[in-house]
């Protein structure tokens, strides 16, 4: 019985797919849009809530209100001892230095692991990958002591300097995988033309690794921009605060919180990430699709 019915069903489905791709497409898109709505609703709600008067922020799960106001943005921007323009500038500075550091250090390290031959290469690469398995909580206290003894408190150095030392194993691994896919013949051709390692790296490998560099830049951007614990530990003075610390200052479970301002400033804090993502989307997809990290 079953052996008869199964082919019929298959044929039915098959016929539908071929005869009416429009319906299938419609269903598929409807489904995707439904999932998208579920995923995006909290963000949309936050944006909508940021335009409601602060007393009404928590009042409903809906998006619409009778009163709309820009007060949350006005008050939020100038909240605290300093205003958010300072926090945004600080975040941008830290993020830009982190991206530059990661691109510089990770690409060089990756080139070494992908193209050079040196003793203990495999062991060192293994060690590097092993650092990914180490939870950051383990190194938190020793790191804090180290930076404190170096008198790096209340500076951006603890947040930026490590990025210039190639400690982000994930990005190194990503680039190693990418560089390995590039044909070695290009290196050989460059060598015949008289290029040393540095010129091969700059002229051949880097231009071809643009997708991997883009992915690294994007993820570093997101990580640095959203980092909270690092700035919390190392930056005490409000004039050094980043956006994430500024946002935290709206919250107070033991007193009064300013949710309206919090949502307004969170909306603004999200904008650069969304913008960067849209801008680097092509590179990102290429980077992920071509590095074997499928």
């Amino acid at each position: 019985m079953t052996s008869v019915s199964i082919p019929t069903r298959r044929a039915l489905l098959g016929r539908r797919r071929t005869t009416n791709p429009f319906v299938i497409g419609l269903i598929r898109h409807a489904f995707l849009i439904a999932v998208l709505v579920v995923m995006l609703y909290p963000v949309v709600w936050m944006v909508a809530a940021s335009f409601r008067p602060s007393a009404e922020v928590m009042n409903s799960l809906g998006l619409f209100s009778r009163h709309y106001t820009l007060d949350n943005y006005k008050h939020g921007w100038s909240a605290g001892q300093l205003d958010f323009s300072r926090y945004f500038l600080n975040s941008i500075a830290i993020t830009a230095l982190s991206i530059a550091g990661n691109l510089f250090a990770c690409s060089l390290t990756a080139y070494a692991f992908a193209r050079l031959e040196f003793p203990l290469k495999r062991v060192l690469f293994g060690l590097l990958l092993a650092t990914m398995l180490l939870p950051y909580h383990v190194t938190l206290v020793p790191q804090y002591i180290l930076f404190n003894e170096l008198a790096w408190m209340n500076t951006y150095l603890p947040l930026v300097v490590p990025k210039w030392l190639g400690v982000e194993a994930f990005f190194i691994f990503l680039m190693v995988q990418f560089i390995r896919t590039l044909p070695r013949e290009l290196d050989d051709a460059a060598r015949i033309d008289g290029c040393g390692h540095w010129r091969t790296f700059i002229r051949i490998i880097m231009p071809l690794s643009l997708p991997a560099l883009g992915t690294t830049a994007l993820f570093t951007f997101i990580n640095s921009w959203n980092d909270f614990l690092g700035p919390l530990l190392y930056l005490n003075r409000p004039e050094l605060w980043t956006v994430s610390l500024g946002l935290n200052s709206f919250l107070d479970v033991t007193g009064e919180s300013a949710y309206g301002s919090l949502f307004a400033m969170s909306t603004l804090a999200l904008a650069p990430i969304v913008g960067f993502f849209l801008g680097a989307q092509k590179l990102l997809i290429e980077g992920v699709a071509t590095t074997g990290l499928k």
């Binding site: 804090y144 909270f228 919390l232 003075r237 610390l245 935290n248 200052s249 107070d252």
Partner: peptide, 23 residues
């Protein structure tokens, strides 16, 4: 006076790290 503040939960995260590093 150098001042530092954070939300209740985060305050204690930071304080514990400062306590364990004697700072």
């Amino acid at each position: 006076i150098d001042r530092q503040n954070a939300d209740f939960g985060n305050y204690f995260n930071k304080l514990n790290i400062q306590a364990s590093s004697h700072t």
